[in-house]
């Protein structure tokens, strides 16, 4: 009996160890947990490695840059690069442009998409499915197809180079990725009960009033999410902004240039800046050929810094967007 009991005892012990390490019944054991944390942390590190690299490089002085032994920790933190990048990019004036280009269209987009999503969620009308399919179509059809005709359209109306080229489509629910926002609103208004609307309707409130006094306050979380994403996407947009606003008519002094448009021509601006600062001597001495990555990285950080701040303050609203969108279906 004892001889036979031993293996089963061993088995039990092995199973207990396995349970502690791997876990069972949906509960994680210690080993599995450690494995998970290690994996997630290292993958997370790889994931934000470019941003970390960017941050560290932007703080390096020239000697540190050329010294291959300096990888992560610069000998001294130099904010010189930021100083230079600020000047090269004309940060102050272009920050205003960027804020305008991202703030105004996203405000209009938030509202126009709310109207459309509300219509899809709360009303029954003929052709609803057809129009919903059209919303999805606007998501799938890539921008280049519309690029030429809209460009000529804007040029016919003489609004090329002005911020109106961004605002008009946004106000009409055709801004950047509007389809996603309409879907978010639709799902949101479908999930919130319509009983308040019904009560107001019985009391004789107009649909307009119902929307503004009940629909809008109710939809505030969805609106915030939409606004944030819209803001970020307009901030990051370069195709449409450089096409509609970068190619302003010659002699037009009032052309809008966003930080990202400035970033894409950073090298040229940097050369011009060096020539301006150190005069023709630098031009002859070849100093302009020195590509200072640290300054470039500082410029890159500066363009995304406002977004990073917004993201870290309000990240809940970003990551909850998916749950709101109702993409998982019921």
């Amino acid at each position: 009996m004892t001889t036979k009991a031993k293996p089963s005892a061993w088995k039990n012990r092995a199973q207990a160890i396995k349970k502690a390490l791997v876990g069972s019944n949906g509960k994680l054991g210690l080993g599995a947990k450690i494995f998970l944390y290690v994996m997630l942390t290292s993958l997370g590190f790889v994931y934000i490695y470019p941003i970390l690299h960017m941050g560290v490089t932007s703080l390096k002085s020239l000697t540190d840059l050329l010294d291959p032994s300096v990888q992560w920790l610069p000998h001294q933190l130099s904010l010189d690069n930021y100083q230079k990048a600020l000047e090269v990019m004309g940060f102050r004036e272009h920050l205003m442009d960027t804020l305008l280009v991202s703030f105004l269209p996203s405000l209009f987009q938030t509202f126009s998409c709310a109207l459309a999503g509300y219509a899809f969620a709360r009303f029954r009308f003929k052709g609803k499915n057809f129009w919903m399919a059209c919303v999805l179509l606007t998501f799938i059809v890539p921008f280049p197809v519309l690029m030429v005709p809209t460009y000529t359209l804007y040029s016919d109306y003489g609004i090329l180079g002005s911020i109106l080229t961004m605002i008009l489509p946004a106000a009409a629910g055709q801004g950047l990725r509007s389809a996603i926002f309409i879907l978010i609103y639709k799902a949101f208004y479908e999930q919130t009960p319509a009983s308040l609307d019904e009560a107001a309707r019985v009391d004789g409130a107009s649909e307009k009033r119902i929307f503004f006094t009940i629909g809008v306050p109710l939809g505030l979380p969805a609106m915030l999410t939409t606004f944030l994403f819209s803001f970020v996407w307009y901030w990051n947009e370069t195709y449409t902004t450089s096409l509609y606003m970068g190619n302003a008519a010659l002699g037009d002094t009032h052309s809008v240039s966003t930080l990202l448009m400035e970033l894409s021509k950073f090298e040229d601006s940097y050369k011009a800046y060096l020539e301006k600062v150190s005069g023709w001597a630098a031009k002859m001495g070849g100093a302009t050929n020195i590509q200072n990555e640290a300054v470039t990285m500082a410029g890159t950080i500066l363009t995304i810094l406002p977004l990073l701040i917004i993201y870290f303050c309000l990240q809940r609203y970003f990551t909850e967007a998916i749950d709101r969108s109702g993409i998982t279906g019921e």
């Binding site: 126009s112 998409c113 109207l115 459309a116 509300y118 219509a119 899809f120 709360r122 009303f123 029954r124 009308f125 609803k128 129009w131 059209c134 919303v135 606007t138 059809v141 197809v145 519309l146 005709p149 809209t150 359209l153 008009l168 489509p169 106000a171 009409a172 629910g173 055709q174 309409i182 649909e207 929307f211």
Partner: peptide, 21 residues
């Protein structure tokens, strides 16, 4: 009334999507 709420989007769809397409 549903169409009235959809109207801004419809106008945009025609002007900035369907016609350009």
């Amino acid at each position: 009334k549903g169409y009235i709420f959809l109207l801004p989007w419809l106008i945009g769809f025609v002007c900035f999507f369907a016609v350009p397409l």
